[in-house]
Design a protein around this nucleic acid. Sequence first.
DNA 1: CATGAATGAGGCTTCATTCAT
DNA 2: TATGAATGAAGCCTCATTCAT
Lengths: 210, 210, 210, 210
Amino acid sequence: MEAQKKLTRAEQKALRPIQILDAAFEEFVRCGFAGTRVEDIADRVGVTKGTVYVYFETKEALFEAMINHFSVPFQQLLAITESLSGSVTERLTSILGLLYDQIAEDRTTRELTRLVIAEGHRFPDLIDRHHDQFIEPVTAKVDALIVEGVASGEFREVPVEFSDIVVAPILTTTVLRLIFDDRRVPTPNKEAFLRVYFDLLFNGLLTKPR
Amino acid sequence: MEAQKKLTRAEQKALRPIQILDAAFEEFVRCGFAGTRVEDIADRVGVTKGTVYVYFETKEALFEAMINHFSVPFQQLLAITESLSGSVTERLTSILGLLYDQIAEDRTTRELTRLVIAEGHRFPDLIDRHHDQFIEPVTAKVDALIVEGVASGEFREVPVEFSDIVVAPILTTTVLRLIFDDRRVPTPNKEAFLRVYFDLLFNGLLTKPR
Amino acid sequence: MEAQKKLTRAEQKALRPIQILDAAFEEFVRCGFAGTRVEDIADRVGVTKGTVYVYFETKEALFEAMINHFSVPFQQLLAITESLSGSVTERLTSILGLLYDQIAEDRTTRELTRLVIAEGHRFPDLIDRHHDQFIEPVTAKVDALIVEGVASGEFREVPVEFSDIVVAPILTTTVLRLIFDDRRVPTPNKEAFLRVYFDLLFNGLLTKPR
Amino acid sequence: MEAQKKLTRAEQKALRPIQILDAAFEEFVRCGFAGTRVEDIADRVGVTKGTVYVYFETKEALFEAMINHFSVPFQQLLAITESLSGSVTERLTSILGLLYDQIAEDRTTRELTRLVIAEGHRFPDLIDRHHDQFIEPVTAKVDALIVEGVASGEFREVPVEFSDIVVAPILTTTVLRLIFDDRRVPTPNKEAFLRVYFDLLFNGLLTKPR
DNA sequence: CATGAATGAGGCTTCATTCAT
DNA sequence: TATGAATGAAGCCTCATTCAT
């Protein structure tokens, strides 16, 4: 309140939609699309229902705008992966570590995943976006590295197109945190988790490989 | 239809609540808790709203009863695992194969997972049940096998308490199917998937283990 | 209340939609389509808003159903006109007298005319119905009689297709009553009005016809 | 557009309220009082809602101001009628011709009539104005001419106070155009219409007057 | 004057729930 | 048991109106 009073009208106006989108994120995550009341979103911002409708035509439009707003910061990660150097193992390790930060540790991405799972039925665009911006790029990147590793002799001859399996522990952590959120199942320690994850991924369980 | 006509009236009536639970499953899966209309459930059974309330006090009670109804058949799987014999590797393979059938391939369990993720917030019991009946037993079983494998020298010295990583590809397949349902991302071929999964799990990616 | 309690459920149910249509007529006439509150219609019947929506999907559907409900009893009049006998003058007189009763004196038809004028823009069907059921049949009938009168020599050679002029005093009375409703402009005495109307229609104003 | 660009800012501002009244006329005619949105009126002028409220306190005040604005030009016609000369028949013919132009052919008067019929309930002043400025003067004038015609022997002994009947074809044309607006029922050709109208009015239908 | 963000009362509509039959 | 008419609370959305800039 104090801080906001110093803002000019113009600044306020530019801020409003973002404030609303932030509030919408929290409420939609908490209650799902159907369960969320537009008034609760407004309350969170400190405005009235009507104000929300000044910026967004319908609850549905607000939901979609919110998803778009929070779906951006994945591009950066993909850019970083291009600049990596070192052995394939090193690069794959780096990428999976970054993915862990992005998908499992970042609350926003995590909750976005919840919404994709919960509301995908009613928002097919949501699924397409999610696929094109998240799943496909990651899959492509990991696949490419595996191919490279196999070609260079660093990796064994494993069939490609199953990069899901490689990435699986990350998505699984995300989902378990979504479900239990530190309740019942503790959030794993990142360092320890990655150590075991990579150890298993690269070396396998067996003492003597077949 | 044919079969039902032969039922006596008494049998019909004993069937009602189950028909309602089945219909409730479909609708809650399709629309989520808040988005589902009791009337749509009734329509699916071919009765009127009132009838639903003869058997279930509230929509919430119906939701919980539905979850309970569809959460049963996991016990069997756990029982089977007790009767397995062979090396630890063989037994782990068997169990993971069964889990794949149960979690990734079985539509009911899959959709139950969706509901846990989507509605867990508002139904804490749901999460507790899910933990006690699904996660904990599986985790315990897999952990026990790993401990056994390490003790017997069959497995390398891997830290326990990370059985999530071992099971991850199964849950990941489940979640990807929930999201994409054969749209955009094809459902993997079971045999091929398991082959790669087990190959990676036991042997790791590297040609020469560190 | 007293009387209604004796009705069975089934009778009540059959009555409800008609009660609602009656109430809707009064409210829509009083406030127009946009100005009418569904709740006021419900109040008039003694039920709650929800009940109205049990029978009619939307306010718009209710409006249209109401128009249809009150647009019926015009057919009878047209039937009567077929059975008339006597000179053309006598028959025309009879018909115009009946029309006066139907259009100018009958409150329902009068108010329906108000709605056609006021709401026709937004309900094009309304105008088509009104044309097909009211205007066209009357016009055709009057035209036919004039043609017959001219043919028989009873009437002067007047151009046809201007039966509007013949009927005009009736519609004008309707409209003036709609506007002033006994306020400012008194409702004319029917007998006196018809006498002058017919005198003028048949004989004209001039002492010595041209 | 061209013309407006040459206006000084001061002239522009003096124009504003009239532009708003013009826009209000169109919208109120199109949607009625309750159905019209102040914003649509503003849009039509190319300003924002707030501007409308600079000039008019409420939507209701705007409606009334609009009615007043468009109700003026009838005085002129009445003035003209004073200066006519010739036989009563000639003068009556002239007056009815002018009335036809004013009431049936002039879109503004026609739509004003629609508003009187549609909104009169909620704006009693509207009805009073309409009576005092339109109905009463016309009625008085026509009545006076009939009295004069009867006195001079030009007209038959018809009862006075039924000038409505004489004017009816004009109002009827107005109303039919309001309802059908060239849809379904074609607008009559003015010359032909007036010829038949006057022929009937002065000579009546019958070959041999009674 | 003009703006347009914000308000908040109020209308339409939905739907979980009840209850007399 | 089953019905379905009725309820009424509550949600989405609209829009006349205000006011700081």
